[in-house]
Amino acid sequence: MTDTHDTRPHLPLGLAQRGYTGVIQHLSAKDTGSALSDIELESRLIELGFVEGARVEVLHEGLVGRDPIAVRVDNITIAVRRREAMAIIVA
């Protein structure tokens, strides 16, 4: 387990598989295709605890298109659609 979070490739949480664990690197709300404006999406994600440095784990996936996902963020569980989770860059 020498694999530190700095050396791992960055990827949007929206592409992560079930069982993925990582740390949030930054938020990038542009071009996610979400119905929300960039600012609104970013605000809501922060309000639900998705901030830089938070540990995340993808716990569950829905049936259709493996969507939405249930994500452990530090010690709470949040359900989000993959589309919005694309704004959360993890490693």
Binding site: I76, T77, V80, E84
Partner: peptide, 12 residues
């Protein structure tokens, strides 16, 4: 003509 609104919910 509209994109679905986001779904974000805490699972207590």
């Amino acid at each position: 003509d509209y994109a679905p609104a986001p779904f974000m919910l805490e699972l207590p």
